[in-house]
C-alpha cells in the first residue's frame, strides 16, 4: 500500500475514528436514499404513490416495469443504446490505442503540438461546439444512425484520450 498517510497510522483513524465513520455513513446514506426511494416508488401503483410517497408499497406493482417496457418500446431503445455504445467504444478504443502507440513510439516534427492539442481538447466539453455538430448531422441524414452515436463516441474519445496522455 501507500506510504504512511494522514489517516493511515495516526491522523484520523487514531484520533477520531468515529468522525470518519459518521462522515462516510452519512455520505453513503445521502447517495443511497434518493436512489432507494426512486426504486421503491417504481414498484408502487400510481394511487399508492400519491397517498404515501415515502413508505414501502403494500402491493408490489411489478407490472409497472412490463408496462413501461412495452409502452416506451424499451427493447428498441436498449438495442439502439447498445449499438451506439458498442460501435463508439470500438472505434474510440482502436483509434485511441493506435494513436497512443504512434505518439509514444515515434518521434516526428509536430508531435509535441499534436499531444498538446489532444490534451487541450479534453478540457473542452462537447456542448460548447454542439451547433456545428448538429448541422453536420442534418447534412448527413443518410448516415444518421452512424452519426447519431456521436455523443457516446465523444465520451469514449475523452476516456480514451486520457489513456493516450
Amino acid at each position: 500500500m501507500s506510504p504512511v498517510t494522514l489517516s493511515g497510522r495516526k491522523g484520523m483513524a487514531g484520533t477520531m475514528p468515529y468522525l470518519r465513520w459518521m462522515m462516510l455513513a452519512f455520505g453513503a446514506a445521502a447517495i443511497f436514499y434518493p436512489l432507494a426511494i426512486f426504486l421503491i416508488n417504481s414498484l408502487k401503483s400510481d394511487s399508492q404513490f400519491i397517498v404515501d410517497p415515502l413508505g414501502l408499497p403494500s402491493y408490489w406493482a411489478f407490472e409497472n416495469y412490463t408496462t413501461a417496457w412495452v409502452k416506451a418500446d424499451m427493447t428498441r431503445l436498449i438495442f439502439n443504446s447498445l449499438v451506439v455504445s458498442v460501435a463508439s467504444s470500438l472505434l474510440a478504443i482502436i483509434g485511441a490505442s493506435m494513436l497512443a502507440f504512434g505518439l509514444h513510439v515515434f518521434r516526428f516534427p509536430g508531435r509535441g503540438p499534436l499531444l498538446a492539442s489532444i490534451i487541450m481538447m479534453l478540457t473542452i466539453p462537447a456542448q460548447i461546439y454542439i451547433i456545428p455538430l448538429y448541422i453536420l448531422v442534418i447534412n448527413l441524414k443518410a448516415h444518421q444512425h452512424l452519426l447519431g452515436s456521436y455523443p457516446a463516441l465523444r465520451g469514449r474519445l475523452h476516456a480514451a484520450g486520457s489513456g493516450v496522455v
Binding site: 483509434g95 485511441a96 513510439v105 516526428f108 489532444i118 460548447i128 461546439y129 474519445l157 493516450v164
Partner: peptide
C-alpha cells in the same frame, strides 16, 4: 523516417479527433 512510420498509427485516431472536435470548433 519516423514521420512516415507513425502515419498509419496516428491517422485513424487523428481523423476522429479532427472530424468530431477540431473541425466543428473551427466551423463554429
Amino acid at each position: 523516417p519516423d514521420a512516415v512510420m507513425a502515419l498509419p498509427w496516428i491517422m485513424p485516431g487523428l481523423l476522429l479527433f479532427f472530424v468530431f472536435v477540431h473541425l466543428p470548433m473551427l466551423i463554429q
